[in-house]
Design a protein around this nucleic acid. Sequence first.
DNA 1: TTCGATATGTGATGTTATTACATTTGTCAA
DNA 2: TTGACAAATGTAATAACATCACATATCGAA
Lengths: 134, 134
Amino acid sequence: MTATQELTKNQSLVFNALARADGPLSAYTILDQLRNDGFRAPLQVYRALDKLLDYGMIHRLESINAFVACAHPHTHSHGHGMIAFAICEKCGQVSEFSDDIITGRVREWTNSNGFKQSKTTIEIRGVCANCGTA
Amino acid sequence: MTATQELTKNQSLVFNALARADGPLSAYTILDQLRNDGFRAPLQVYRALDKLLDYGMIHRLESINAFVACAHPHTHSHGHGMIAFAICEKCGQVSEFSDDIITGRVREWTNSNGFKQSKTTIEIRGVCANCGTA
DNA sequence: TTCGATATGTGATGTTATTACATTTGTCAA
DNA sequence: TTGACAAATGTAATAACATCACATATCGAA
């Protein structure tokens, strides 16, 4: 379940909306974009988003209540590394990266504290290089 | 502006609500707890929370839309290290720690990408040691 | 004492997410 | 083929989280 064509109709519509966007979208923004495709209610969006999150095709940005298409689907699908996001507060652009050392340090803390982690969020808010110089 | 007695009335009420709680509270939970103290509207809570965040006395947990009193006020007030939170999804308990290596790796990424970070969120969701064995 | 900055009170509104229930579609085995 | 189950969908209502707009009050410094 990693290819676009195996998605259901609603899942494809939502994923494509995120894929063609140049930044994160809120669930309600997606809903508005898909009105012409028959979307009427938030739940249609949220259900699709849930599945796409399951499949690892998109990410949720907790600090801004928005969603982005995964930038490096191949890289992540294999490794179990944590993904960090740098979110520009001016232009909204999101950069995605993962760092084995950070992943290792987090794992070290969880192991030594008996904490079973299920999902880890790393979000850096700030101003990107483009917007910083402008 | 680090001592409790320098806070305004509303700020003190909100901070004390968080300080005596054994875990994170949502803004609306705080509001309900402070009805008897004259609180009527969400904004009274949110305004106090904003200030307390400014002062570094509390933290916002982005992934669960809740707030906690800072566990180690002395440690953090000096260093500029990022704080990580481990949030138990069973009991709600939050552990706070900071790690210089993680801080350093994040800084390395932001420096080499010209990204000016303003605030960084690290939240580990999972099950704590107590709940994992129970 | 008067001006400005900060804090407060209050109602309305905006934004994000879920519950509840009915219906449809797809799959698979008898 | 059909019946039965799982997954997906449609829709309305509601819950949960957060801010706007505007009026009033409090306090410290010029």
